[in-house]
Design a protein around this nucleic acid. Sequence first.
DNA 1: CTGTTAGCGCGTTCAC
DNA 2: GTGAACGCGCTAACAG
Lengths: 345, 345
Amino acid sequence: MPNEHPAPPRRTPARRVTIYDIAKHVGVSASTASRALHKPGRVSKATEERIKRAAAELGYRANPAARALPTGRTGTIALLVADITNPVSFEMVRGAEREAEKHGYVLVTSEFREDHVKEASRARSLAPSVDGFVLASSRLDDDAIATIAALNPVVTINRESPSAFSVLADHEPALRELVRTLAAEGHDRLCYLGGPESSWTNAKRWTAIEAAARDEQIEALTIGPNRPTREAGQRALDAVRDTGASAVIAYNDIMAIGLLTAARDAGLRIPEDFSITGIDDIFGSDFTCPPLTTIAAPLDDMGAAAIRHVHAALSGERDRGTEKYPTQLLMRGSVGPAPQPKGRK
Amino acid sequence: MPNEHPAPPRRTPARRVTIYDIAKHVGVSASTASRALHKPGRVSKATEERIKRAAAELGYRANPAARALPTGRTGTIALLVADITNPVSFEMVRGAEREAEKHGYVLVTSEFREDHVKEASRARSLAPSVDGFVLASSRLDDDAIATIAALNPVVTINRESPSAFSVLADHEPALRELVRTLAAEGHDRLCYLGGPESSWTNAKRWTAIEAAARDEQIEALTIGPNRPTREAGQRALDAVRDTGASAVIAYNDIMAIGLLTAARDAGLRIPEDFSITGIDDIFGSDFTCPPLTTIAAPLDDMGAAAIRHVHAALSGERDRGTEKYPTQLLMRGSVGPAPQPKGRK
DNA sequence: CTGTTAGCGCGTTCAC
DNA sequence: GTGAACGCGCTAACAG
């Protein structure tokens, strides 16, 4: 802990009301009050009613810390995302938050900025104050995830791991469809603009593209690894052109947007000179010039599902497994026919 | 609490190491261990060293809940934002998170989706588990904020309130400059596309625009209130055209982008037929067609500052006041000369 | 169905 | 400089 937060000059203590206050007020013991408030049916209907009324009147709020001590449950779930400012995170965070609230959990969201060291350290420091973890686009290896999972249930999003439940977007069919479409448009060499090496999905995506290209009997090559940023997308323009490919599939929309704007700045016409596609369907991908062809996943649902599985694991249900979500190819203006029809086939 | 999370089937307890473990391990009392770990100099240099070593060896992690009980401090700060999926939130969240981590706090981020009822209820339910609040773009009235501030220090972002410390972006100079520029380009009637009624900044922005327009001797009118969404921006196109204004300043970039895309879909040329500007400089505002003229604020710094002020308040420093941050007008392609010079003056 | 007792892990008196 | 004892608010175990 780099810094301590001292307590000395306490703020207006304004003592909060406890179960003892309401117990005294009603004329029962504290444990009865506790039961009435949280254990359904363990107390007579009449006194339960009186206790609940008193609690409402006095404005009682359970102290989570006090509750966590005997139960070992904090009522908090941590969601670790690679990059908060990546629009991909939004929908996931929103879905997770909605579901967490629904089950009475507080959600703590934290980003690790694509840094696996930071990710591990955040998990370690958060571990004592949460009941479980959701790791979105984790950069950790299986051992590191296992370490975390030893103390708390872990659900991963877009990352498979033997020690966690995994919620995945199945990009394979959409990528295959995309490659088929590109081939049909006459593209006979396509380039995958790769993402971070430590990204599990990066490898998956390239594998799917490669296989699809083979089936379509067109060439596929990849450049990378690259950081998943706009800047990286921009800087990749020359490398992409050097490949001689007429179509590019970028690791994600952020990179695709970087590449697209760089291409336009360089005087290229999209898609006449060049087809570009991304993955994710982030905010903004529909209003680039031209709008970006991309692949959408139900990130909102996936975020919610992850929380649901953490909750299930905490309730004693199985905490390993995989759940796949379908994705959808969105054809937009950034894809067009190959520039020089070479008459393949 | 809509739902309880039952504890019964506890997960591999895997008892965590406590100060007692390390105390026994070293051969001292628990209180000495506690002191050595957190009270500088209250224990002999030698034993302090041994205790710290033991703590490290055993992998000791303080139990925040147990700590919170006697101290009343949870080490957590809540950040409430209007809309997580609005890119405006990102930078603020990121800055806040960075600063929170720096001071050893855990940050809980939660959105209330522009709903003041939800905002209040979130604050109420979070109150017992946090040390303080940051309310970003709060939709609450002063009384509601005062209620929250009675229990925990509150810092507001882009919202002034008598019972909280306020971190504000000062849009007035940039708006004035923008209006002056528009006037110089020949626009003699401009329209403010208003945001939500409950938004404090909405009123501020309109006031600044109105005053600047008066000074420039051009006409300014406003339409609204509107929800701060892309859809609202799109739907406003007709209303905006009906005003006869040749330039629009939107409440924020999201709405501006909605308006811009709707205008283009309707066959209008921007900025030849119409100048459009936003406020916020969100992700995406630089790659619309044409790029959006907007006003940028140091949201990252403001988020960090808010946390700093919560921390300061918790340390007994003053918890009322105002801190203003300068903003910057970014002229981009969406602004041009007025379509039909009417030869004002 | 309900009251009593004990203890969660830690900080903090108060003695020594 | 250090240890023993108490209590934070709540739940759990054990009576009754």
